[in-house]
Design a protein around this nucleic acid. Sequence first.
DNA 1: TATTGTTATACTCTATAACTATA
DNA 2: TATAGTTATAGAGTATAACAATA
Lengths: 161, 161
Amino acid sequence: MQENLKSDATCEERSYGGLENMSGFLISLAQAYVFEHFSEELTPKGMRPAQISALILIRENPGIRHGELAEMLKLKLAYTTKLIKSFEADGWVRREQSEEDRRAIQLYLTPEGAAFVDAMKPVLTESDAARPSGLTARETQQLMRLLRKYLGMDVPGATAD
Amino acid sequence: MQENLKSDATCEERSYGGLENMSGFLISLAQAYVFEHFSEELTPKGMRPAQISALILIRENPGIRHGELAEMLKLKLAYTTKLIKSFEADGWVRREQSEEDRRAIQLYLTPEGAAFVDAMKPVLTESDAARPSGLTARETQQLMRLLRKYLGMDVPGATAD
DNA sequence: TATTGTTATACTCTATAACTATA
DNA sequence: TATAGTTATAGAGTATAACAATA
């Protein structure tokens, strides 16, 4: 694909200059790669990673509060508000003032929202598993295990290897 | 910190509902975590991860083209143009029309830019290593090895584990 | 006084497309 | 015709701060 081997620089091996040994840099690149290969089925439905993840978390945790959702997804609370308002406008999410703490807002999926998530989750799971990478299935499991530990995510159901 | 153990939902264990076994989701969370903990020394200097990485790559690969830089950093070419123009305005980068292919622009650091990178790179390296995570040093090496392989990054100098 | 969520603004980066100048 | 880069616009998500309501 590259045939121009003449320039003082264009032909040389490009170097990452130490960035290849920084975990932050590698994680950023991996993230860009993941976004680039995000599900071609979900994108046309207006679903970006943050959106489908939020709906899945609400599906899984009915009554979750704004702040809890933001923390689990590592989204800013201010942005979470916008996200949820748009879900509400779409008719997928219902907001309810908490009775214990009347400052808090609890989130629930509408029947339409729940049906949508139930239909889309297998699509997401499939597209995540199908995303091309240089890793074997076993290495992918290992990567996920390390990332969960990196994040301090306590997940009992995680595969041991 | 949480004493409200009464709600139908607030007290229950929150579940990731399968997201914890999707590599794309875990990588996204890790990326958010990395950005959150980006060097407190570099940020006040107007350096975000993409910016300092770009400068390092130009430092390491004088004469690199716009497109090559965008590809290595997985940035969009359109955004790379803006980035480089702002570096040029800062006096850190010099742009030069390639002699072999007069469509291409080659990038070089000015002496000021080179001095800045040389001063900041140890800061970046240090802050990357110091970022708190749930991993041991050895696991971090393993994570980086897996990420490089995930990305198809061919790096001879990488630690073997 | 501190906390939950809302609103608003500026900024970073993506997605897309139209454009130029070269090849 | 295709490629390297530029410009512009819309959108996603961050950073920050001021604000209202409640604890």
